[in-house]
Amino acid sequence: MPILNRVAELLPEIVAWRRDIHAHPELGFDEHRTSAFVAERLREFGCDEIVTDFGKTGVIGVIRGERAASNAKVIGLRADMDALPIEEVTGLPYASKNNGVMHACGHDGHTAMLLGAARYLSETRNFAGTAVLIFQPAEELGVGAVAMIQDRLMDRFGIEQVFGMHAFPGLPIGTFGISQGPTMAATDEIEIRVEGHGGHPGRPHECIDSIHVGAQLIVAMQQILAQNVSPVDSAGLSFHLFHSGNTQRIIPQTAELRGSMRTLTPEVRQLIKKRVGEVVAGIAQVTGARIDLTIQDSDAVVFNHAVPTKLALHAAKDVAGENSVLETPPVMVGEDFSFMAQARPGAFIWCGNGNSAGLHNPAFDFNDEAIPYGTSYWIKLVENTLGS
């Protein structure tokens, strides 16, 4: 079916919401203005129940359908609200007004599309059961979903299935991407502190060079993927920070390294963790440095369950057409929706953002042309799943 006529009518308003949120980005658990904006819109729409400060700064909106049903269901629709600590370079009229913070991952669009669906569903209520709209904080910190679950999100509202959606740069506008099974990676944060022995570069034999030790660690850990992980298994291990020393003519005493590992199966995840520990221990023994390793679990694998995936696929095809819903392979980014899909059967879908800058890029902007498709997807998902 084409885009819903009412969604087309609402489009200028939804775009205005999106751009207002974009201009006022807030980091995880600091989304006070955004949460207030969302809650005020939900009140205007006449949602049956609105809960603020849920999972610290999250917002819940509940809309009950008016169609009769012998066994009414409850589903959750989730959008994330937080921004990233990135300086925006788009130069757009609605660019971030908060220095060093921007919506570089499309959460402004996610929030606006779910608000648009809330507006429509509150007006029509052409479904049975209950739609629970979840406006989640702190996705970029990997802890917002957990905070909401700890506030008894699933039990308090009786959610039986949960659904998420995310903009996807490079996927054409008007298309969706989804597949059953693992769809996004588990991410684990790696922190390493090297304690060597600083000294004069003219007497290196009296030192333990922390830069040299750190370099050995990085090279050796890349070999883990090449030599220990099967070529048919997806995995990633990269370092994002390497800091040692602050001046010339001194071999530095310490070095700090931070990175992440990304995997799609528990077996590969545990294998890489084990090998990282063994590499650290071996290089510490060879070099004489003290090396402290911390591996912090972050997002789990986002796993699309069979029944919710079929429901999401059906709704997407209703909106975009049979040939515009693609089977997408897993991607090695993390998403804390994973914890919601562990708590209840769930499905996560990609919404095409067209030829835009990539996610987490200072030139990224959510494409407003995607709004009618994402908003209509949410509506059809509710009306199809809670049809009777």
Results as ranks from 00 to 15, higher is better:
T124H: 15
Y377V: 08
A341C: 10
F135C: 07
K97P: 02
D299A: 14
I211C: 01
Q223Y: 13
V213Q: 00
K274A: 12
Q248F: 15
L77V: 06
G174A: 10
H360R: 13
C105L: 08
V276M: 07
G346F: 05
R262P: 05
R262N: 05
L311T: 05
R67H: 10
Q222C: 02
Q227F: 11
E31Y: 00
W378E: 01
H197S: 12
N5R: 13
I190L: 13
P2G: 15
W17C: 01
G202R: 07
T309G: 09
A128K: 14
C47Q: 02
G106N: 13
G46T: 07
R18K: 14
A138R: 04
T294G: 04
V132T: 11
V280A: 11
V276D: 03
D53F: 05
E66Q: 15
L326C: 00
E267F: 03
G109S: 02
P12G: 02
M154P: 06
D80A: 06
I190D: 09
P362A: 11
S298F: 09
P252Y: 01
F366D: 04
A131Q: 08
I192F: 00
R67E: 09
G55F: 03
F163K: 08
F337P: 04
T287M: 04
R203G: 02
V301M: 04
E267C: 01
A138T: 07
A23M: 13
D80M: 02
I371V: 14
V219K: 13
L381T: 06
I60A: 03
I14N: 03
G100K: 11
I149E: 01
D365M: 06
S179R: 14
F45L: 06
S298I: 11
A306W: 03
T263M: 13
S122Q: 12
A289G: 06
T175C: 12
L257W: 04
N228G: 01
T175E: 13
A300K: 12
N355Q: 15
H240W: 00
R78W: 00
S376F: 01
A347V: 10
R249G: 09
E335C: 05
P172F: 04
P231S: 10
S238Q: 12
E335F: 05
T175P: 00
C351N: 14
V15R: 11
G28R: 03
M1Y: 13
G76L: 10
Q216L: 15
D188P: 07
G358T: 09
H32F: 15
A185H: 09
V279A: 08
P169T: 01
E123L: 09
N5Q: 14
L359V: 12
D188C: 04
M102S: 15
G245V: 06
F37C: 02
G282R: 01
V59W: 09
H212C: 15
I86Y: 00
A16E: 14
L326G: 00
N384S: 07
I3G: 01
M81N: 04
R64Q: 14
I190C: 08
G236P: 01
I291R: 07
Q136G: 06
T90R: 09
T328Y: 10
M184C: 00
P182D: 00
L121Q: 09
A235R: 07
F239A: 05
D82V: 00
V232E: 10
M102Q: 08
V132Q: 02
G202C: 08
R33D: 11
N99Y: 12
A69W: 11
I250V: 15
E13F: 07
A39M: 05
L77W: 09
D188W: 06
V51P: 02
P330E: 07
G76F: 06
